[in-house]
């Protein structure tokens, strides 16, 4: 954004004020995430900066909360549970969602609007309502407090993300490519693996990532329908925040911020790859 040459003095001032406002909003967005990183290296068991930290005294910093995390059987067990539940539900959601998205993208899909609205609904219904409802139903059919129950619940919650990303990818998919492949002598299987799949994969993978992070970060449903055996990371954090006894939680938070940076990078790379494959941007 540049200032046009005809701008008056008032406009110039306003321009810088505007940039200042935007800067403050960016600070508001990102600042809290940056504050937590140094705090997690605190040598003292507090949630704030100690004097030693502020004077950059090495003694004020330590890795004790990270050590705490990696030696605590509770945290390690929670992380294991999170991965089991996250991977299983992501797999289910991706398979069911991708297949359904293929159907939804068909030109002849009847009642597409209504079905789409229904498939997206798990994302819209507040989690506490889904959690309460699933608690009632799952305890009736003996699925409460089981891995299967939590995995099925998280699959339902992850599906809208897969549907949205995969249908978006498919809508920009040029179906003449399939005919072109056929006319060049490829059979349907070969066409699917050589033409369709490479173009659709970025959408499927980013849908799967969304589904995974949804499950990995989900507290409310697990709080209601999981038993003590299925304690996940977010539940462990939830009780850690409520009791606020140790900054281990800050170490976990820092690692999760790094994880989301990694995820964001992956998604961005996928998006660029998708664009390049479709010839929208030069490689």
């Amino acid at each position: 954004m540049t200032i046009p040459s005809y701008a008056t003095r008032g406009e110039r001032i306003w321009h810088y004020v505007f940039l200042g406002i935007c800067g403050l909003v960016f600070l508001f967005l990102i600042g809290p995430l940056l504050v937590i990183i140094p705090l997690s290296f605190n040598a003292e068991p507090y949630f704030t900066f100690s004097k030693a930290m502020l004077s950059f005294d090495p003694a004020g910093y330590s890795l004790r909360w990270y050590q705490d995390f990696f030696t605590s059987s509770e945290w390690l067990n929670a992380i294991k549970n999170s991965f089991i539940i996250g991977i299983a539900s992501t797999f289910l959601a991706t398979v069911l969602g991708t297949v359904a998205a293929l159907g939804l993208s068909s030109r002849h899909m009847p009642a597409r609007g209504a079905i789409m609205a229904l498939l997206i609904s798990p994302m819209v219904v507040p989690l506490i309502i889904s959690a309460a409802a699933m608690f009632f139903f799952f305890s009736k059919v003996n699925l409460a407090q089981t891995y299967v129950g939590v995995i099925l619940a998280h699959t339902a919650l992850g599906i809208p993300f897969v549907i949205i990303t995969v249908t978006a990818t498919l809508s920009s998919f040029d179906t003449t490519l399939i005919r072109a492949a056929h006319s060049l002598g490829a059979n349907p299987t070969r066409t699917f693996f050589k033409v369709v799949l490479p173009l659709v994969t970025p959408g499927v993978v980013s849908g799967a990532l969304f589904a995974f992070i949804t499950s990995f970060d989900e507290v409310v449903v697990v709080l209601f329908i999981a038993g003590p055996e299925q304690r996940t990371m977010p539940i462990q954090m939830w009780s850690g925040i409520r009791e606020q006894i140790s900054p281990t939680i800050l170490a976990v938070a820092t690692m999760l911020v790094l994880l989301s940076m990694l995820l964001l990078t992956t998604l961005e790379l996928l998006r660029r790859r998708g664009e390049r494959l479709r010839g929208l941007s030069p490689g």
């Binding site: 809290p32 937590i36 977010p234 954090m237 938070a253 999760l256 964001l264």
Partner: peptide
């Protein structure tokens, strides 16, 4: 980045701040 960061992490940071 905040959009992708765990909800609990963001809540924790506000408590710390």
């Amino acid at each position: 980045l905040p959009f992708w960061t765990s909800l609990l992490v963001r809540t924790t940071t506000w408590i710390a701040i």
